[in-house]
Design a protein around this nucleic acid. Sequence first.
DNA 1: AGTAAGGCGGGCA
DNA 2: GTGCCCGCCTTAC
Length: 103
Amino acid sequence: MSFNEKVWELTKKIPKGKISTYSEIAKALKNPKACRAVGNALRNNPDPINTPCFKVVKSDGSLGGYCGRDPKKIKIKKRKLSEENIKVRANKIVNFKQLLHRF
DNA sequence: AGTAAGGCGGGCA
DNA sequence: GTGCCCGCCTTAC
């Protein structure tokens, strides 16, 4: 199993209505410093349907990017989050700490 | 407080 | 094998 597959698996494991961060995923992969690699893996997301990359945000609760830092896609990200009872305001997750899922 | 730059892990040409 | 790209993180200014 390659690194990105692990990233995707973890991303899929995020419960509905919850989110996680790049560094949390990196830690779960035993590579706390691999946060960038996580972003890279999600960027190469081969299966956006089963891999809810919109549930992965930055460590400060801001959304970060989505499909290549495309502002239009980030809008979709926001809406997707709100569809799971995750509120987004000013490009940040509301109640971020409570919604944060730890592996 | 906002901005800049360095470092890091891993994928890809 | 090398170099460059990143949806980042952290530190320094």
